[in-house]
Design a protein around this nucleic acid. Structure first.
Lengths: 279, 279
DNA sequence: CAAAAACTCTAAACCTAGGTTAGACTTTTG
DNA sequence: CAAAAGTCTAACCTAGGTTTAGAGTTTTTG
């Protein structure tokens, strides 16, 4: 301040910026020190250069890239700044939308984990009211019960890819599931009908999106797809024993899925369910 | 699909991911192919590994870092996932707030540019209604009119640093300005009183935040700080000639500031103003 | 005035989450 | 069996810096 030239350290301090950042800006030509000693190569700045640095920091705070900032500063064209800012405005709006979706997805996941921790024992049968749900579904092309997990994985992949093709990010949906016609279930057969993912309220309406009505369901809990046949039978037996009338299609719903326990198997928590009517 | 092993290309395609990303994930141990040919070093995956890859992609969509994902997958601890998600939730909320501020700042800047393009000629005198404004201000420690731009730059830096110290990002405020007491102005002296930045409605209330009342102002436009003394005098003369009674303190307001035209001077558009009362 | 302390220099490596390229090798297809 | 398609490794690139090492310079202290 004495002799009106600032060393890089002083310049850094009064502008709340790091020395290395100033050196980087020098290197890329964003802001050059007004004087560089030819012997020692020390950089010296003038306090009037704060104006330019302020401008750089402001544009950076608006989310502009250093390249864009340099371009703008070199052109001195306010039209250019404006066009960049208008583009940036759109970007920011999109980002905000995406982050809101992320937020919803994170909350869903936290809830799902909570549910997992408080889940009933495997084999527990309950009768519960389940609120309505929305699903994005696809008919199964093969009965995967006849083939096993590989075919199920394939079907699920196809479903998810059809979502991606429609530009719907993974974040919209959470857990998957399958349905089976009421008739198959009652006959004790295992015939897959549909595969689906649950979607939230933000999900755009389309032909593939269906609503599963709310109602009373008889449910049984389990933790592996492998056990589904056995547990589906138990569910049917229970309905017969208690004289519940099956009122709709059977659903196998994944409540929680964390493939963290093993490399090759989905670590899951499932709920098989059928809607029932009371006579 | 035939012999149940997938090449890296097939695996990439069905999972909508690039081959190089799969190789990266292998390298960092996030997901290893279930079999690697020892001779050719070709990677082969099992379709059941989709479960893990799904999980990875889901966590990535939640904004988690690969390191965190790896940690979670290795620990298999749902408590750990939950704590990371809770932290992430906070982050996302903050990001959304910041982006909203950014959006406001961008809009302000676009407006400022528009104003610049439609600005009156230098020296134009107007009488306008100016709505109320909020400023974050600091008394000036020296009368910078006696010293010139370096001292002004220093004062401005100090003001901005006091903002940063209070954790207020650059984005909250836009343009700067200075005030001078009515008495000084009327005597034709130039004595700086306060330096300020305009802040928006989101800005937190504090002792340093003042309100400048709305009202009718006599204004003169110019484009350089250097001309301020001359134009301030013109403004005063105009008030006298037209018999306007100066009703409050003098303000020098930066309407637009783009230091894009020159390396060392602020490229500006200024408005000197005094509130007037009509008799 | 000399030594010590503080500062600054360059060059290179590192960070994230991959993308790209070159040149060699392997597998599949016709 | 040849051509085409696929895959391999290794190295380098992105943006916006941060960190480090080792050497040189400036300022402070005694």
């Amino acid at each position: 301040m004495k002799n009106e030239l600032l060393s890089i350290g002083e310049m850094a301090k009064i502008n709340n910026i790091s020395i290395s950042t100033l050196r980087l800006y020098d290197e890329i030509g964003l802001i050059k020190p007004c004087y560089t000693d030819k012997e020692s190569r020390y950089r010296y700045y003038n306090i009037r250069q704060n104006a330019r640095l302020d401008m750089i920091q402001y544009m950076k705070a608006l989310g502009m890239e250093l390249k864009e900032i340099k371009e703008v500063l070199e052109s001195g064209d306010t039209k250019l700044i404006e066009s960049i800012l208008i583009r940036r405005k759109k970007q920011v709006k999109e980002q905000i939308l995406n982050l809101n979706l992320q937020l919803a997805a994170i909350s869903r996941t936290i809830e799902s984990l909570e549910r997992y921790r408080k889940s009933p024992n495997i084999g527990t049968i309950t009768i519960e009211y389940i609120p309505h749900r929305k699903i994005y579904s696809m008919p199964t092309s093969i009965n995967f019960y006849d083939y096993g997990i590989e075919v199920y994985e394939n079907e699920l992949k196809e479903l998810k890819n059809s979502l991606i093709k429609h530009n719907l990010p993974q974040i919209y949906y959470c857990n998957a599931g399958t349905t089976m016609k009421k008739e198959s279930f009652l006959e004790g057969k295992l015939e897959s009908d549909e595969i689906f993912v649950l979607v939230d309220d933000n999900f755009p309406q389309s032909d593939s999106v269906k609503r599963i009505e709310s109602g009373m369901y008889v449910c049984i809990y389990l933790d592996s797809f492998d056990d589904e046949p056995e547990y589906a039978k138990r569910l049917l037996d229970y309905c017969h024993e208690n004289n519940y009338k099956v009122a709709g299609d059977y659903i196998c719903e994944v409540l929680t899925e964390f493939s963290v326990f093993d490399d090759e198997k989905r670590g899951m928590f499932l709920r098989l369910q059928v809607p029932v009517a009371f006579r």
